[in-house]
Design a protein around this nucleic acid. Structure first.
Length: 257
DNA sequence: ATGGTTGAAGATCAA
């Protein structure tokens, strides 16, 4: 069973890229982020024609998350993280698929530092950790997949020095990541590629970042203990980033037996 | 030196 996460950066502008990737890689589950469209504007007919069902939480202009499943629609479990009824951002959706609990999440970027955007990021991470603890307490097989906007280690970015002032690699950001992981989650890509220094999943559009492989590893799949027991493979579909009119992220995936 | 690019909205913001 192949489960992927893909920050699509505008599902309408990127629809040909999405359909091409679904056909070529045939993921059983595709967690999407940055739909950048309202609920009613999602091109569901095209997705269904490609053989996928979906649940989604859109938002006009920015954010927006979805879970696509091959053959049929997933069973929706939750839209939005608990803990802040005033949070209007569409950044979390959770569904059940073949006995697995799967979440598609778009963690706040948090830039620039010195604004409430960074505080919002850290508060959102607190809420994610609280909800993740509840999922583990259910003893279900869980995959938390998405754009975490967290550079876990210095080697997960092309230049930690040049990016030192970025919200993605602040000590507070990494501390919040570790608090989440130490509940018992496994960072699937890193677990299967412990020595690989360029497991990048994102390359900025500017300054020739893609051409000189100046990337970031920020799209992650966190696996619960019983999901980790089933982990067979993990990777990044780098080819997708090199296509015309590509998203700035590449699809990132795991295979469970 | 505060650059560079993209999408969606709309004459700017978020990334």
């Amino acid at each position: 069973m192949k489960i992927a996460t893909f920050n699509i950066n505008g599902i309408r502008a990127r629809l040909p890229r999405l359909l091409e990737w679904l056909e070529r890689e045939a993921p059983d589950v595709a967690c999407l982020q940055e739909l950048k469209c309202a609920d009613e504007a999602l091109p569901i007919a095209d997705i269904e024609a490609a053989g996928y069902g979906a649940v989604w939480h859109g938002q006009k202009g920015f954010n927006g998350v979805a879970i696509l499943t091959r053959g049929r629609a997933p069973d929706l479990r939750r839209i939005g993280l608990p803990g802040d009824p005033d949070d209007s951002h569409s950044r979390y959706i959770e569904a059940e698929v073949d006995g697995l609990v799967i979440a598609s999440l778009y963690l706040p970027n948090g830039n620039p530092l010195g604004t409430d955007k960074f505080g919002y990021k850290l508060r959102w991470m607190d809420r994610l950790r609280a909800h993740a603890a509840e999922l583990l307490a259910e003893e279900r097989t869980v995959i938390l997949a998405g754009d975490y906007n967290v550079v876990v280690e210095d080697r997960d970015v092309w230049s930690a020095n040049r990016m030192a002032g970025d919200a993605l690699l602040q000590p507070e950001t990494r501390q919040a990541w570790r608090r989440l992981l130490y509940q018992g989650w496994t960072d699937a890509l890193r677990a299967l590629h412990p020595k690989e220094d360029k497991l990048y999943t994102f390359w900025d559009y500017t300054a020739g970042c893609w051409q000189r492989d100046a990337g970031f590893r920020i799209d992650h799949l966190l696996l619960s203990p019983t999901a980790t027991d089933r982990l067979q493979a993990a990777g990044v579909d780098r080819w997708a980033r090199g296509e015309e009119k590509a998203s700035d992220h590449a699809p990132t995936w795991v295979i469970l037996d």
